[in-house]
Design a protein around this nucleic acid. Structure first.
Length: 633
DNA sequence: CTAGCCCCTG
DNA sequence: CAGGGGCTAG
């Protein structure tokens, strides 16, 4: 298959719209989160309302392998054509960043439900509103991006973000100078009230559904929806699991919230709130949810080069802070870790390539999309609803397909093993460089853009716990070393840029933990690429001389050219990537340069190539946005 | 001094 | 493709 990448100026507008004024790494999923799921948009009532709505809706529309479909597509296929699996590629295109799934779409934008369901939902929501006394407000959640997004929208968004940024700073200070004890007390109270609210909600929820369908009991629409699914599993399982649900939900939520409160409280009081609690939770790697993934506690890949534990996992703008807190967190490791963060021993990316072989991402392959997409509350809840608390999260539809297919036991995450952790060292987080499954991500990256850090927000975060932190942790896998996949990607990037700056490299390898060594290795790769490139150019230029070509204009580079074949064989061996035309032009220019230089006998000068290099390095073009999010298989 | 590039070698 | 040396610009 030979899907062509769009021209480099055809990037989806996600970047254009979201481009931060800082060029630092910001993973697309986080950007998305910023607008689609702003934490700050959830009020007490609305978050639950959202969850319910989403959960119910998703139950209908979610296909296990197609969670990334637009809701429209999913709904359609869910009712009619279940064989839509075959259209994966086109779907993948449709789910480009701009056409993002609208799991959290506002009700108006959703598919029409049955009156029955709407009535039900209305009732539940009404109850929630009454309980919470808070209208559902989601101001920024529907900011889907599209190429047609006007400048106004963009500016509005910028303004919104800028506004948020401005809000944040003073609030930090306010709270850091405020009385820590008082704040903490307030916080704890809030969290507990939230907990109570949740319990009430669960009970009401149960009531509503059992009243509505006394005969069918708990065979609510979720199960009905499941019957429409193509999961091929018996509904009995769900039936039983759904019974468990109410109780388990209560227990787990309560436990998690309790844990969270305790941890936060403990932490805050021990630290004296030198930073606001929210910022500590977000900015340090300490507050990360860990998931005991497999039973092996031994490091699977002890041969991996291990930079010092103090190495930063990423180089976001908060690097300095991150590094300082990281070192601190290592020292602060006083508790016994019951659940060490273990990345599942998963087949390296490269080795799963054959099973998930796809044409090079035109936009985002499902795989990449999955990585870049946080688990939303609704998804977690839904999974819980569907499979019960003791199920395997590896079956989550947003998990990379490779995980499901190639390592069935790699994501064995019993519910009990999911726990809030307050202290996780970076070496734990990043140890298995090649593990492609559930990795950890530095939280500061996630939180910076969208967390309004204040005690009130901590409540919001805590009420989302453990899901919130769970979401953070499964977002992205940060690689410590460069994999063959990265090499392949780098080669493809070479079609666009021969002289990428280290900043560009960092931007386009967001899943790589950059350090000096990695950076220079990447640069070395491109140096090697150039070397091969120029050798070929010189070779073919001299060949042209030998062939008696007298006019440079007779020298062209087309896709049929031998030169192109040689280059393509080197950088695009699988030939599954459509080389941009621009590269052909650059190649032709380079060839001409060499030809002219040789014809002018400049090659007698030992540094005759330098002039050519100088020309060629100006011919770099932007690498398409798609490369930013793609780990390529 | 460091980063980055080039060249050469294996 | 990696290692290593030489060179240069900042």
């Amino acid at each position: 298959m030979n899907l062509s990448l769009p021209d480099q100026n055809m990037h989806s507008s996600s970047e254009g719209c979201l481009d931060d004024d800082k060029p630092d790494i910001m993973l697309p999923c986080f950007r998305r989160n910023m607008y689609d799921e702003p934490l700050t948009s959830y009020s007490n009532g609305s978050i639950i309302s959202q969850l319910l709505r989403k959960t119910i809706h998703n139950k209908r529309t979610l296909d296990e392998s197609h969670f990334y479909l637009s809701s429209t597509t999913a709904a359609d296929s869910g009712q009619e054509d279940q064989s839509s699996v075959s259209s994966k590629d086109s779907i993948a295109e449709a789910s480009s960043p701009s056409g993002h799934i609208s799991i959290g779409a506002s009700p108006e934008g959703e598919h029409p439900m049955t009156d029955h369901m709407q009535a039900k939902r209305a009732r539940v929501e009404n109850i929630i509103r009454v309980m919470a006394g808070s209208p559902n407000s989601r101001q920024h959640g529907d900011s889907e991006r599209s190429d047609t997004d006007g400048k106004d929208t963009r500016e509005a968004r910028e303004a919104y973000r800028e506004n948020k940024r401005k809000q944040r700073l003073p609030q930090h200070q306010d709270h850091s100078v405020g009385g820590p004890d008082e704040e903490c007390h307030k916080l704890k109270e809030q969290l507990h009230s939230m907990q109570r609210l949740l319990r009430q909600l669960q009970e009401k929820f149960l009531q509503v559904y059992s009243q509505e369908e006394p005969e069918h009991d708990s065979r609510d629409e979720m199960e009905v929806a499941i019957e429409h699914d193509t999961l091929g599993e018996t509904t009995d399982t769900y039936y039983v699991e759904s019974h468990n649900l109410q109780e388990t939900l209560k227990q787990e939520l309560s436990r998690a919230v309790n844990e969270c409160v305790d941890k936060v409280f403990k932490k805050v009081s021990s630290k004296g709130l030198e930073l606001s609690p929210g910022s500590r939770m977000c900015s340090s790697p300490e507050m990360q949810l860990s998931m005991g993934a497999d039973r092996k506690s031994k490091h699977a890949d002890s041969t991996q080069e291990q930079p010092p534990a103090g190495e930063a996992a990423l180089k976001p703008r908060s690097l300095e802070y991150y590094e300082s807190t990281e070192a601190q967190s290592s020292q602060d490791q006083t508790e016994a870790l019951s659940l060490v963060v273990r990345k599942p021993a998963v087949t390296p990316l490269s080795s799963v390539t054959p099973s998930v072989k796809r044409p090079y991402p035109v936009h985002q392959t499902p795989f990449q999309f999955n990585y870049g997409t946080p688990l939303h509350d609704s998804q977690i809840l839904e999974h819980l609803l569907k499979y019960g608390p003791h199920s395997n999260f590896g079956a989550l539809p947003c998990m990379p397909p490779s995980m499901d297919r190639t390592s069935p036991d790699s994501v064995d995450l019993p519910w009990d093993s999911i726990a809030m952790r307050s202290k996780v060292t970076s070496s734990h987080l990043t140890h298995h460089a090649r593990a492609s499954a559930l990795g950890a991500v530095t939280v500061d990256n996630l939180c910076l853009p969208h967390v309004k850090i204040e005690c009130g927000e901590l409540q919001s975060m805590a009420e989302r716990n453990p899901y919130f932190f769970f979401c953070l942790n499964v977002n992205v896998n940060i690689q410590e070393g460069l994999t063959p996949s990265h090499l392949k990607k780098a080669k493809l990037m070479f079609f666009y840029t021969r002289y990428p700056s280290s900043n560009v490299l960092k931007t386009f390898f967001p899943d790589v933990k950059f350090n000096r060594c990695i950076t220079s290795q990447l640069i070395k790769w491109f140096s090697n690429f150039r070397e091969f490139y120029y050798i070929q150019m010189e070779k073919f230029a001299r060949q042209a001389m030998v062939d008696g070509i007298s006019d440079v204009k007779d020298i062209t580079v087309s896709r049929d050219s031998e030169l192109f074949r040689a280059l393509n064989m080197h950088y695009n061996k699988a030939n599954d990537f459509h080389v941009p035309d621009r590269f052909l032009e650059v190649a032709e220019i380079t060839l001409h340069e060499f030809y002219n230089a040789i014809a002018a006998a400049k090659d007698s000068d030992p540094s005759w190539k330098k002039a050519i290099y100088k020309v060629i390095c100006k011919l770099d073009s932007d690498v398409p946005e798609e490369f930013k999010t793609s780990s390529y298989l």
